[in-house]
């Protein structure tokens, strides 16, 4: 193979997180007390602005059985649609009481996972467009060779969803609904249910970002 005289590096290849991913990323779920401050699925602090919501669901394999060893992470903007990140270029201050990121593991028995967070505001899209409110979500697990990315949209944002550039870039319109979470009220709490189907009927849309 001929090489040009500049060197571009190849991205380090991905490998599965394996069945014991919790040891490193959620040590408390593996009953390991090592760190004083552990990362978790609570994105809401006392002074965080915005509507409190709970996001929950399960991840199913090709036989429709829940993954009980899956690790889930989310990344989202604050209530005003600003990311608490140095790379957000909107020139608006992000909520100082919001990390925007959380991590959880499915229950070892039932496979249910959940986050306590806030509903994100709309974020600018490309070329002056506006994206519907959404949460970026990635799953890692045994049997998954590279983290699977998707987005969570909200079923009570139908108008914004209809104009969302990413949803509209999915040519198979019937697949778009696999990225839309269902709002319910439970004991005075707002809950969005979002099940992920890795393979088969109603397979969730996964993104190459």
């Amino acid at each position: 193979m001929t090489h040009w005289n500049f060197q571009e590096l190849s991205e380090t290849p991905s490998q599965t997180g394996g069945p014991y991913v919790h040891i490193g990323l959620l040590p408390k779920q593996a009953n390991i007390e090592v760190f004083e401050q552990n990362f978790d699925n609570q994105l809401v602090q006392e002074n965080t602005a915005g509507e409190r919501i709970r996001l929950e669901g399960r991840v199913f394999d090709g036989l429709d059985l829940p993954l009980r060893d899956v690790l889930v992470e989310i990344w989202q903007a604050d209530a005003n649609g600003v990311y608490p990140s140095d790379a957000d270029v909107q020139d608006k201050p992000a909520d100082a009481n919001f990390l925007g990121w959380g991590r959880t593991g499915a229950d070892f028995e039932t496979g249910f996972w959940s986050f306590n967070t806030i509903k994100p505001g709309a974020v600018p899209g490309r070329k002056g467009s506006t994206q519907a409110p959404h949460i970026a979500l990635v799953i890692f697990a045994r049997g998954i060779n590279m983290g699977l990315h998707t987005r969570v949209y909200f079923d009570d944002e139908a108008e914004a969803n209809a104009k969302d550039p990413v949803l509209n870039s999915i040519e198979w319109a019937k697949r778009r609904q696999t990225m839309i979470a269902k709002r319910i009220e439970r004991d005075g709490e707002t809950v969005y249910q979002f099940d992920i189907r890795i393979q088969g009927d109603d397979e969730t849309v996964f993104l190459d970002i």
Partner: peptide
């Protein structure tokens, strides 16, 4: 990986 891999191609955005 057999039952934990999508059948559809990833959608690049």
């Amino acid at each position: 990986s057999v039952l934990r891999s999508p059948k559809n191609a990833l959608i690049s955005i």
